[in-house]
Amino acid sequence: MSDPAVVAADEPELEQIVTGKQDKPRSLGSDAWHELRRKPTFLISLILILIVVAMALFPGLFTHVSPTAADLNHARGGPSAQAWFGYDVQGSDVYARAIYGTRASLLVGVFATLGTVLIGGIVGIVAGFYGRWTDSLLARFADIFAGMPFVLGAIVIMLTLNAPGSNPGETRILSQVVFSIAVLSWPVAMRIMRAATLVAKQQDYVKAARGLGAGPLRIIFRHLLPNTVAPVMVYATIALGANIGAEATLAYLGIGLRPPVVSWGVMISDARDYVAAAPHILLFPAAFVSVTVLAFVMLGDAVRDAFDPKSR
């Protein structure tokens, strides 16, 4: 604002210039892909994520040591040529456990994100499309969940589902963790979807479709969804990272995954009493969580920029 003459300088003409006449049909999606392939942050995050996924699918490729094999002689042993990341309290190989822990952590992240996006997306598009009292009602409903502190909400849900002292099975506890994360974080996805829907609904192409006699389902699936899904996908990539972190939080608090399941959260939780004496037990799994979360956040950023070049 220090410049009186330059109150705004948009480029009305740039779009005209770029509106070239290419020979091949190119959708917005392929445009975005074209953009992404040339971004180092995207490539780095993609490689990291592919490695993490490979660890989850085929842990045997990365280590021959069993994650459950324990030799108390090695307990709390530091990193060595034999065990790169050292040994934990039980004398298990930290590297092997971190590799095998990937699967549970990633499963929680993927399914919690799927749940978040599905619940949030559906509620958001319905609220945005129908508007009026439907919107008011759903928005207030979402506010109730959004207003709840995550940790408190998760403790309440997990303790309600499992009486203290009970020992639920692996699948059961995994789905409970997924459920509590999804239930507590869907309002964010809902708001993003609702906002995108409100914008898309105002566009003339929706008016034109209504004028042609298109019903609500056609308008939602054909016209709104393809134009609103991008911001939700961006959120989903970032949320995936955050949800892996949330898994670790719940495990650390003792209400999430627990042994004999191996996950990064469980490993961090196991290390809590030995931080000073044997920091490597904590640091290595924590580094796995941090790097994975960072990779997803970077991916989300890159995808967002590619879909919306104006945000740069």
Partner: peptide, 21 residues
């Protein structure tokens, strides 16, 4: 150039709503 903008040459735009803060 900043000095010239405003004191020497000033500019007004089509869309006053987005040009004003």
């Amino acid at each position: 150039r900043r000095m010239v903008r405003g004191e020497g040459i000033a500019m007004i735009f089509q869309d006053a709503l987005s040009a004003l803060n």
